[in-house]
Amino acid sequence: MNKKGPLYALFLSLVLLLPGCSSLTVLNPKGPAARTLSDTIILSILVMLGVLAVVYILYIWVLVKYRAKKSNEGYVPPHEEGNVWLEATWIAIPILIVAFLSVVTVKTTSAVENVAADYKDQKPLVIYASSSNWKWHFSYPEEGIETVNYVNIPVHRAVEFRLYSFGTITSFWVPQLGGQKYAMSDMITTLHLSADTVGSFIGKNANFSGKGFAHMEFEALSMTDKDYQDWIKEVKETASPLTEDEFKGLLAMEHVGRKTYTSTHLSFSPPPGDHGDHMSNDGKDTDIDNGNTDHQEHKDIHPSPEPSSETEFDGEPHPEVDQPLPSSPVEEHTHHSD
């Protein structure tokens, strides 16, 4: 069957491209999370190539051997009901493959959802990344700095991004540092990233968010600790504070270039609650507790929110931003899936 010709050529080119091809950004990781994911992807491609090989060999064999030709004219194919052992084989082997990949999935998912193993002993640098229209705001609560459309991080440092949105759902993604995660208006999501090398990486919103979506990119720059400290010092000397009015103006704009400020918007426009420490608008405690995965499975056992050891910005009521009641659909998932 010559129709598979182009298919094979393409597939072969993929296989050849895989190792060391720097243009495949996702497979060219520069941080522990991205490396875990890249390894997972390559492993799964190899397993799947094995599956494809079995199917293709069988396929070509039956087509070549059993096609109608002059020599088998008058051949009457037999009646076959099936074969228990054969069918059991192609049920059992896929189950084993799926089981293997499930183990890999659970392990790697939990690896990238937490601080990378090499960085466990560090206190992570917290950066709030929030989106509005088609731009990204980065707030450094510890340094008291805010930037727009670029983020600088020290190399070899655990960084904890806390994501939320001033509008549509966006997805924060720096492919060479790790996987993406949604930023939404009524809860904070957390993404752990670290860079192993100094360098500039493309970051973007991956989730379609309207007209300006295609241009919603930012630069993630990892720099040596000294450069990072210098940068902070320089910002403190040259930039000015972010006022509430200025921030409102920023939010209203569709696109802006890079901006730098010496204070964050978190003080006058606090982020929505974390998964774990939601407060309802009327100030009463509600029993919504669904962020931490440990809690999800035992929701009825300890329904009240656990106190969190957070920065001063978390869990504050936020009457002026039009934030809806905090909760997430997450717990509904667990209801359905139970």
Partner: peptide, 13 residues
């Protein structure tokens, strides 16, 4: 009903 039960505590102001 699911939608209602999701929304039941979200009475805002």
């Amino acid at each position: 009903f699911t939608v209602y039960l999701v929304m039941v505590d979200r009475f805002a102001s």
